[in-house]
Amino acid sequence: MRESGFTIGEEVKIKSSGEAVTIYKCQYVKNMKRYSYIVKEYPNTFFFEEELNRV
């Protein structure tokens, strides 16, 4: 398992909209071998690392 690309509390941008959001929670999805992230602004939606950019 590799290390998460973003940390909790880090501000990132959603690639599709360019909106700045804050990482709230991250979780490793074992069967997909990648991390998913929940952001404070959209707590019912998760994003994968490739859908987010550093600010």
Rank of each mutant, 00 (worst) to 15 (best):
42 Y>T: 05
41 E>V: 00
28 Y>E: 13
34 R>L: 15
10 E>D: 10
48 F>T: 02
29 V>E: 13
17 S>M: 05
43 P>W: 11
34 R>K: 15
7 T>I: 13
32 M>P: 01
16 S>R: 07
38 I>N: 04
18 G>W: 14
29 V>R: 13
24 Y>K: 14
31 N>R: 04
38 I>A: 03
38 I>G: 03
46 F>G: 01
36 S>Q: 15
1 M>Q: 10
19 E>Y: 01
15 K>G: 00
42 Y>S: 07
27 Q>I: 09
49 E>W: 00
16 S>T: 11
47 F>M: 04
20 A>K: 12
14 I>R: 09
34 R>F: 09
51 E>H: 03
27 Q>T: 12
37 Y>F: 09
44 N>C: 02
46 F>S: 15
37 Y>E: 05
31 N>G: 03
32 M>A: 09
43 P>N: 10
36 S>E: 15
42 Y>R: 13
37 Y>H: 09
24 Y>R: 11
18 G>Q: 11
53 N>V: 02
11 E>K: 13
2 R>F: 12
41 E>H: 00
26 C>P: 00
47 F>I: 02
55 V>D: 03
18 G>V: 09
16 S>P: 00
19 E>S: 04
55 V>T: 07
27 Q>A: 13
35 Y>M: 08
24 Y>D: 15
46 F>R: 10
39 V>L: 00
42 Y>I: 01
53 N>D: 05
4 S>N: 11
54 R>C: 01
4 S>T: 11
13 K>Y: 10
51 E>C: 02
15 K>C: 08
24 Y>F: 14
35 Y>A: 08
26 C>I: 08
43 P>H: 11
54 R>P: 01
21 V>M: 06
54 R>F: 01
49 E>R: 04
53 N>W: 03
53 N>I: 06
35 Y>N: 07
47 F>E: 01
38 I>R: 10
3 E>R: 12
36 S>G: 10
24 Y>I: 03
39 V>D: 06
52 L>I: 06
21 V>D: 06
25 K>L: 15
51 E>M: 10
24 Y>L: 14
15 K>N: 07
19 E>K: 07
41 E>I: 00
37 Y>I: 04
34 R>G: 08
10 E>C: 11
52 L>W: 09
11 E>G: 00
44 N>L: 02
53 N>P: 02
15 K>T: 06
48 F>Y: 15
40 K>E: 03
16 S>M: 07
2 R>K: 15
17 S>K: 07
32 M>V: 06
50 E>Q: 05
5 G>S: 10
7 T>H: 09
45 T>W: 08
27 Q>C: 14
21 V>E: 06
32 M>N: 00
19 E>Q: 11
41 E>N: 03
26 C>G: 08
54 R>A: 08
11 E>F: 14
4 S>F: 05
44 N>V: 01
37 Y>P: 01
5 G>R: 11
19 E>P: 00
25 K>M: 15
36 S>P: 03
40 K>D: 02
8 I>K: 14
55 V>G: 01
14 I>T: 07
38 I>H: 12
21 V>H: 03
46 F>M: 08
5 G>C: 06
44 N>P: 00
44 N>D: 11
1 M>C: 12
42 Y>M: 07
2 R>S: 11
51 E>W: 07
50 E>N: 07
55 V>M: 08
1 M>A: 14
43 P>M: 13
51 E>R: 06
25 K>H: 15
50 E>R: 01
1 M>T: 10
42 Y>C: 07
8 I>F: 06
38 I>W: 15
27 Q>P: 03
44 N>E: 09
43 P>L: 13
